[in-house]
């Protein structure tokens, strides 16, 4: 590349980076500022003042909500991965009639948007008395077509002879699954774990519907409440609340970005 070209590339990237970061950095700055300073238009704090963070935690039980989000996230991520692994294994390694149809039906469900299902799922969960429970929060999302699809792609690359050989040696089907297949797809497990946790932590509509009490309410809905209650005019505290909510997933993206990128590409390329 020519020198001018490199310079132009850097300038464009730098401008874009400033735009992308700006909303978060602005909030970060406000989260350490006094309300009176913010109202005067002085957005940059003189020192790190943690009052807004303390207030955010006191106004809404944010810590409790974060623990709820973490529990929900870990539970749903683990179960989604286990269920998807099992399903993909059956589709790739166990011969049975109607396999194609089963797989096609699963893939077809990807086209049904969750918003279409939400009314009926709400009624189901309510009739099972599972509103305001972790089970109610995670159940409807436990089967992941995307997960099954990625694992299937991955497992198809495992030579079939391995399966035959292990049968000869006397390794059971489940043994083969645990000892041979699962370790071979562990990269996909990591990718999906990051992805599922991100999606779970950030999900909005279903937690909004299925939690009406504090007990299992997630942090996203906590942030919504923070905005809708008295906090509306306490900008520093709102900023602090949003920073608290975003920190775990931002860290996950910083460390897992490469992994995610590789996994997503597999999904896109088919």
């Amino acid at each position: 590349m020519k020198k001018t070209q490199i310079a132009i590339t850097y300038v464009i990237l730098l401008i874009a980076a400033v735009f992308m970061c700006f909303p978060v950095l602005f909030s970060l700055s406000l989260s350490f500022s006094d309300l009176s300073d913010i109202l005067r238009g002085d957005y940059i704090p003189d020192s790190l003042n943690w009052t807004n963070y303390v207030n955010a935690f006191n106004t809404q039980p944010l810590l409790h909500y974060m623990i709820n989000s973490a529990i929900t996230g870990v539970l749903s991520t683990t179960l989604q991965i286990i269920f998807a692994l099992l399903a993909a294994y059956a589709i790739v390694f166990i011969p049975f009639r109607g396999k194609k149809i089963v797989f096609m039906i699963m893939m077809a469900t990807m086209m049904i948007p969750g918003e279409v299902l939400v009314i009926s799922n709400f009624q189901t969960i309510r009739s099972w008395n599972l509103l305001n429970t972790y089970a109610g929060l995670i159940l409807p999302g436990l089967a992941s077509t995307f997960g099954i699809f990625l694992f299937r792609q991955n497992m198809m690359q495992i030579p079939r002879e391995l399966k035959e050989a292990s049968t000869v040696v006397g390794i059971s089907d489940f043994g083969f699954f645990i000892k041979v297949v699962a370790p071979m797809v562990k990269n996909t497990v990591v990718t999906l774990a990051i992805y599922f946790f991100l999606v779970s932590w950030n999900s909005y509509m279903w937690p909004l519907l299925s939690t009406t009490k504090d007990t299992v309410r997630t942090v996203q809905i906590g942030l919504r409440q923070l905005q809708n209650t008295e906090a509306v005019s306490d900008y520093g505290m709102m900023a602090a609340g949003a920073m608290i909510t975003s920190l775990p997933t931002l860290l996950l993206i910083f460390f897992g970005q490469k992994r995610l990128q590789e996994g997503m590409t597999k999904g896109a390329l088919k």
């Binding site: 991100l198 909005y204 975003s246 860290l251």
Partner: peptide, 11 residues
């Protein structure tokens, strides 16, 4: 550039 993927709609 990929960071906004880690930010929820609420935040």
């Amino acid at each position: 550039f990929s960071s906004t993927m880690g930010i929820s709609v609420a935040a």
